[in-house]
């Protein structure tokens, strides 16, 4: 093989003009742009925004005043104070609607890229496998935050527009002013946001197992449903503190006087545990996976 002639003519291309300027934030920004400009994401956020609107319309249009015993907790309070619309909407979204949208986003993270064929191009760019997973998880977490915020903000705006708003009576019977009430609602929203992070990590892990995004999405949603059913079976009491949905409805603790952060802390710790375990599983799986799609 005579290759002297060509090898001497080879000019080394300059890979960088200056010192390597790692643009680590670039991929995250690109991930958020792709996620939040996507029609599907916007449709899901629209559906989440519709939840408080539908509740408000249902209350406004029904002639009889609901008794406190019927319907979800807090529902009867909405017509007295619009700010309770936020609590009601979050309570209704948390078991099903939010996990559903998070299942779609988290299940799509790796499997979606694999099915489009973009995963191999991200990896040879090179994105770095662990960096890609971290960015993908950050994207899902951002969606959890935005999804919760959409429900809360729409709930606040619609509540203010449709119902009387005044001093808020807490669950403990104390009343607080609107400013304090809005603060409490922000805490409740944060609680809901944190509650979704464990499920997000599970979805990310499931997404590394397949190249069929719909499968990963469905499996993540099924996980959330199964865990909530297990949480409702009293025979499995010993298991309940370990289920990621166990503290979900405990955000009511934030609506008492004096305020209790105990369940917030326990919930955050539990979610962190899920993030660590399923994050490690996802890294373990994805770091060594053959990307053949």
């Amino acid at each position: 093989m005579s290759l002297n002639s060509v090898s001497t003519a080879r000019s080394v291309p300059e890979t960088d003009t200056g010192p390597a300027s790692p643009s680590g934030g670039s991929l995250l920004r690109s991930e958020l742009i792709v996620l939040f400009r996507r029609g599907r994401t916007l449709a899901m956020l629209g559906a989440l925004a519709a939840i408080p609107i539908m509740i408000a319309l249902a209350i406004k249009l029904s002639p009889a005043k609901l008794s406190a015993a019927k319907g979800p907790p807090f529902l009867d309070q909405v017509s007295n104070n619009g700010l309770f619309l936020v609590v009601t909407a979050l309570l209704i979204s948390l078991p099903l609607f939010l996990p559903l949208t998070i299942g779609v986003v988290a299940g799509d993270t790796i499997a979606g890229e694999a099915s489009l064929g973009t995963l191999r191009y991200l990896l040879i760019a090179p994105a770095g496998r662990i960096r890609l997973l971290l960015v993908k998880y950050a994207g899902v977490a951002a969606f959890c935050f935005v999804g919760t915020a959409v429900v809360a903000i729409t709930g606040t705006l619609v509540g203010l527009a449709f119902f009387p708003v005044g001093r808020v009576t807490l669950l403990s019977g104390d009343t607080v002013g609107i400013g304090e009430a809005i603060g409490r609602l922000s805490l409740v929203s944060s609680f809901v946001f944190v509650s979704l992070l464990g499920l997000s990590a599970i979805g990310l892990f499931i997404s590394t197992l397949t190249v069929v995004p719909v499968g990963a999405m469905a499996a993540t949603v099924v996980m959330s449903v199964v865990v909530q059913i297990l949480d409702a079976l009293p025979q499995l009491g010993w298991l309940h503190p370990w289920l990621f949905s166990h503290y979900w409805i405990d955000f009511a603790d934030l609506l008492r006087q004096p305020i209790s952060f105990a369940s917030f802390g326990e919930n955050a710790l539990l979610q962190l545990g899920y993030i660590v375990v399923f994050g490690a599983l996802a890294i373990g799986r994805f770091a060594s996976k053959d990307v053949l799609s």
Partner: peptide, 19 residues
């Protein structure tokens, strides 16, 4: 669902050395 330009921007942003 992205344009040709947006696709290239996306893949380029994955390269840490791409300015």
């Amino acid at each position: 669902f992205l344009s040709g330009t947006a696709n290239l921007h996306r893949l380029d942003s994955a390269d840490r050395f791409a300015s």
